[in-house]
């Protein structure tokens, strides 16, 4: 019998919520432990950051010099590397400092900011190393994570949905938040994966799964302005949890009339 596939779960700047896809999985966690060998997952116990693995999940964005080094080492030891959630894939909320003066922010929170090792930016894993596949969401959808593990075990690339939240809304029969309530909803430019959760809970989508395929962000910005939103308010909707996804970063900058690259 061949050895079990080896899996690692690494943490960078994050809230730990995406790792709960495993820790909240209940019986599935025990099944997973039978199918694979979990060699590194500090929150669950196993610690071996330098182990060679078949599949490494990375939660969190790169926000310190140490993290920038560590992600390169992880890449070298991992056959397949996948991001786990919005921080690793699109920066997370902490990436909002990329649009601000990060030094001033740090000085605003810490009495001696010079002793805190932090980069001026929080960036997605993709900007540092090659990523084999990305799981979106704040948090990730737990079923999607376990499905991805299955796919990798079977030797196929995970099929990750990239269509718009609107399509799931129609399938669920949710009344359209934008049309029937006249409230902002990011569904028309946002990737599904949540199952159109927010509209089902009577509120607009806030884009925690990042941009869908081919999002028409400019036309949608006009639509939001048609609801009475100011350009700054539209910019804040693009620059939220997934602000470092290129489509949203650019759309927000355009609205905010920010000319920096």
């Amino acid at each position: 019998m061949s050895a079990k596939p080896r899996i690692a779960v690494h943490k960078f700047a994050s809230c730990d919520g995406c790792q709960l896809a495993f820790l909240n999985a209940g019986e599935d966690l025990l099944t997973l432990a039978e199918l694979v060998e979990i060699v590194h997952f500090p929150e669950a116990g196993p610690l071996d950051p330098a182990a060679k693995v078949d599949l490494a999940f990375v939660e969190g964005s790169v926000s310190t010099p140490e993290e920038a080094e560590r992600i390169r080492a992880i890449r070298r030891h991992s056959r397949v590397l996948a991001t786990l959630g919005a921080c690793a894939t699109a920066g997370g909320l902490q990436a909002l400092r990329n649009f601000a003066n990060a030094g001033e922010w740090l000085a605003g929170v810490y009495a001696t900011p010079e002793t805190v090792a932090a980069l001026d930016t929080a960036t997605p894993i993709r900007e540092h190393v090659k990523v084999d596949f990305e799981l979106w969401g704040c948090p990730v959808n737990g079923e999607q994570v376990l499905q991805a593990v299955r796919d990798v075990l079977f030797g196929v690339s995970p099929a990750i949905p990239d269509e718009k939240v609107c399509l799931d809304c129609k399938r669920r029969g949710n009344p359209c938040v934008l049309v029937t309530r006249g409230e902002p909803c990011m569904g028309p430019v946002t990737r599904t994966g949540c199952g159109a959760l927010c509209p089902a809970m009577n509120r607009g989508c806030y884009a925690c799964f990042g941009p869908a395929e081919n999002p028409n962000t400019a036309a949608f910005a006009n639509r939001l302005e048609g609801l009475g939103l100011l350009p700054d308010e539209v910019a804040r909707r693009y620059h939220f949890i997934t602000s470092q996804a290129p489509a949203f970063r650019a759309a927000g900058k355009k609205e905010a009339k920010d000319e920096t690259p």
């Binding site: 909320l93 740090l106 806030y206 804040r236």
Partner: peptide
């Protein structure tokens, strides 16, 4: 790593607060 939540809240509307602070943990 510091994520500077108290600073990133500044300048955001009240209506973002509940969604933002959830992400602390």
């Amino acid at each position: 790593p510091p994520r500077l939540f108290e600073k990133l809240l500044e300048g955001r509307p009240w209506s973002d607060v509940i969604d933002i602070v959830a992400r602390i943990c």
